[in-house]
Design a protein around this nucleic acid. Structure first.
Length: 693
RNA sequence: GCGCCCGUAGCUCAAUUGGAUAGAGCGCAUGGCUACGAACCAUGAGGUUGGGAGUUCGAUUCUCUCCGGGCGCACCA
């Protein structure tokens, strides 16, 4: 609703500026004033216009305020400071609309969205770095769905790469295990943990003797070729570990729709289809000589073609040296990215280009599909195969894609984008977003706690990178278990009257809330230096704090013998409602009239509670910002702000003992609205609210 | 060497994407439970936003430069 008013305000001002000053399509920045008393919107517009109109900002602001005229839903415009225009909405009308959960129709872009996230190598247990990826991705999926978009969730499985090969090497050559023995191990619990340890041992084994690397090369080759014992073992391992990953993520309410695997990209010859098109478009060029002789290469993203000026690669001194590539239009060696190796095999980026052509429906080939994993809610997760089932959902062929992949791969991601552009698919390239985020590392203290001995140099570092190869890191399931145990201790102490099952359920929800919130509170470019002390905190700026606010709100209604739905509507998921119908599902006797809202929210005394209402009105606005900026952290901020404002409100206004009938109804409505919004925001973060805390 | 990211309170992070007096949490000090359960609230101390220059009416935000840190730059994925 807040968002809708903002759009109306912008539109209205644009019209006014065009009419009055002849300014078309002026860029109008809208923000919130620093204090609630100043109004709901602030416009620094006059500062921007000062130069164009050659007038003092304050003068312009006065003109705008005088001439802008009335706008439904708004109370007044006023000049503040050196030329700000502060805008006041009609509080009572907005509050009534929020209580009724009015959702003005919003334009939803056409087409499906594909979000790729998790994409964990299926050769070892998931760790905290993977958790950040999955939680960011899953939250973004939820945000898109809240905004009314149709979303496919994909988890790309690299089941034929070196990482899986390494574990195969470990079982076959170090452990000397037979296929049947591995099968037994894979069927037992925590197979991913077994692989975690083995993977670290294999890395060590390679380091001991370089000859051992030959085994890896042979194994990798056999896996890629398929139809042999080694490939069968690799498949057994990758599928079993993948199942474990799905189970781990399911603990956090993270689900996928489709698991495309690299093996099918190879066996269904996706690359052949892409290769032809890439050669034809001149995206790939053959190197007949030099370092990359015999390879098909592509220009590395971020390197630009030197046009008239020579490259910096001078032959001697000075800057007059001629470019090595200008004559032939070729790419200098250091700007080349090898896509097809001289032995004819295709590398990772090549496979990724083909995969992304498929995503946009540009490849002309499709996967085979088979059901793979059924979630308790009956949701079906599909996996790629060569020969699939006849009936399956239609995947791929989407309008927009988001790839949740850490920042270290931004160059590879950009190279794929440039390949699409080079193929003439500029529109697709523009709707390809690398959802980039920084890694999760460990603080030196945390590393020491885990029993790793650190060099003096490491101790001085701000963080130490997690390394699967070294087996160095915190496993996802271990962290979750720790969080549940810690939350459980608190729940047991606070609610001895509840059954063990109920307490376990609450502890789990708190643990998930703490973990998901923790991973979302940092903005994407910030490295998370992980520490158990911070992650296990349930106080302050944390998930449990926000959950607790909702529990307290619920307790008011429970103790008072009310139902929150008496006081406010909830049209979640109802996209076709007819706005403006008063009363709706609400209890008529509990309804606060617009006149009453005006009384309680008006004047200076109303500011404090109004601030809470305004924040509650902003959820869809925040959701829009999160999507536009691909930044779920704004959502966590919003949840915290709502919870914090509610906690203050809760302390200052004892509701059930309120003597005034009208005021009590108003306070209950306030609590009901904030509760609804907090549940909604936490829901978008994948956090549920426990029955008690 | 080239490219990308980061540097804000003791610590961990925000700052509406260029706007009004730079805000939170943790920690520290003090105070508040016969309860709509304190996983909470209130009060306080704590800042030359790494240094410098520039653009702008206005810079934590943009540009340049220096300092410090991180990550990329394989015929790996």
């Amino acid at each position: 609703m807040y968002r809708y008013l903002e759009l109306r305000l912008i539109e209205h001002l644009r019209e006014f500026l065009a009419r009055t000053y002849g300014l078309e399509n002026a860029n109008i920045v809208v923000e919130q004033p620093p204090k609630i008393e100043f109004g709901e919107y602030a416009l620094p517009l006059a500062f921007e216009l000062a130069r164009k109109l050659r007038k003092a900002p304050r003068k312009i602001a006065e003109e705008i305020v005088a001439g802008v005229g009335a706008l439904p839903g708004f109370e007044k415009f006023e000049v503040a400071g050196g030329g700000y225009i502060n805008v006041r909405v009609n509080r009572a009308e907005l509050a009534a609309a929020v209580a009724d959960d009015v959702k003005p129709p919003a334009a939803i872009p056409p087409g499906k969205v594909l979000v790729e996230h998790s994409s964990i190598n299926p050769n070892k247990a998931a760790h905290i770095g993977h958790l950040r990826n999955a939680i960011l991705g899953d939250t973004f999926v939820r945000l898109l769905r809240v905004a009314g978009r149709e979303v496919d969730v994909q988890n790309y499985i690299d089941n034929t790469g070196v990482q899986v090969a390494d574990v195969v090497v470990g079982f076959m050559h170090i452990e000397q295990k037979s296929r049947a023995q591995i099968e037994t191990l894979a069927a037992a619990p925590q197979f991913d943990y077994v692989c975690w340890d083995l993977y670290a041992r294999v890395s060590q084994w390679y380091a001991e003797d370089k000859e051992n690397l030959k085994v890896r090369a042979d194994t990798l080759h056999a896996i890629e070729e398929g139809n042999n014992e080694t490939a069968a073992i690799a498949d057994l391992i990758s599928v079993s570990v993948l199942k474990r990953h799905l189970e781990t993520m399911e603990r956090l309410d993270i689900e996928y729709d489709f698991l495309p695997r690299e093996s099918e990209i190879l066996h269904l010859h996706f690359w052949d289809a892409a290769f032809g098109k890439l050669k034809e478009a001149g995206v790939l060029t053959y190197e007949a000589s030099g370092k990359n002789k015999g390879c098909w290469v592509m220009r590395r993203a971020g390197t630009s073609k030197p046009l008239t000026t020579g490259s910096t690669e001078g032959t001697g001194e000075g800057r007059t040296g001629e470019s090595h590539e200008a004559d032939e239009g070729g790419i200098s060696e250091e700007d080349q990215k090898v896509i097809v190796r001289s032995n004819g095999t295709v590398g990772y980026v090549g496979k990724d280009i083909a995969y992304h052509m498929w995503k946009f429906g540009l490849l002309g080939r499709d996967f085979g599909y088979r059901k793979f994993f059924r979630y308790p809610n009956a949701h079906e997760c599909w996996i790629s195969t060569t020969d699939g089932e006849r009936d399956h959902p239609h995947f791929g062929d989407v309008a927009e894609i988001y790839n949740v992949i850490d920042a270290r791969q931004s160059e590879a991601q950009n190279t794929v984008i440039e390949a699409l552009r080079g193929l003439g698919h500029g529109e697709a390239a523009d709707r390809y977003t690398h959802f980039s985020y920084e890694m999760v590392a460990l603080t030196p203290r945390c590393a020491a706690e885990l029993g790793y001995t650190l060099s003096e140099e490491d101790k001085a570092r701000p963080w130490i990178e997690v390394s699967g190869r070294k087996g160095f890191g915190v496993k996802a399931d271990d962290l979750l278990d720790k969080l549940i145990a810690s939350a459980g201790k608190e729940v047991d102490a606070r609610h001895p009257e509840l059954s063990a099952a109920e307490r376990g359920e609450i502890a789990t929800q708190i643990a998930i809330g703490a973990l998901r919130y923790f991973m979302l509170k940092f903005t994407k470019p910030s490295v998370i230096a992980f520490d158990f002390k911070d992650a296990l905190s349930f106080e302050g700026d944390t998930g449990p704090y926000a959950q607790y606010a909702v529990v307290r709100a619920s307790n008011i209604f429970r103790k008072g013998g009310f139902d929150p739905s008496q006081f406010c509507r909830d049209r979640s998921g109802d996209y076709l409602q007819t706005p403006g119908k008063d009363g709706g599902g609400k209890d008529a006797a509990s309804r606060v009239s617009t006149e009453e809202f005006a009384g309680f929210l008006g004047g200076e005394g109303g500011d404090e509670i109004w601030e809470l209402w305004l924040a509650a009105a902003q959820t869809s606005h925040v959701v829009g910002q999160c999507i536009a900026a691909t930044e779920p952290a704004y959502l966590a901020k919003h949840a915290f702000r709502l919870a914090q404002l509610f906690s203050m409100f809760y302390h200052r206004h004892p509701i059930l003992s309120e003597a005034g009938e009208g005021r009590k109804r108003f306070l209950l409505t306030t609590a009901a609205v904030v509760r609804r919004e907090l549940i909604r925001v936490l829901g978008a973060m994948g956090i549920r609210v426990p029955a008690a805390m």
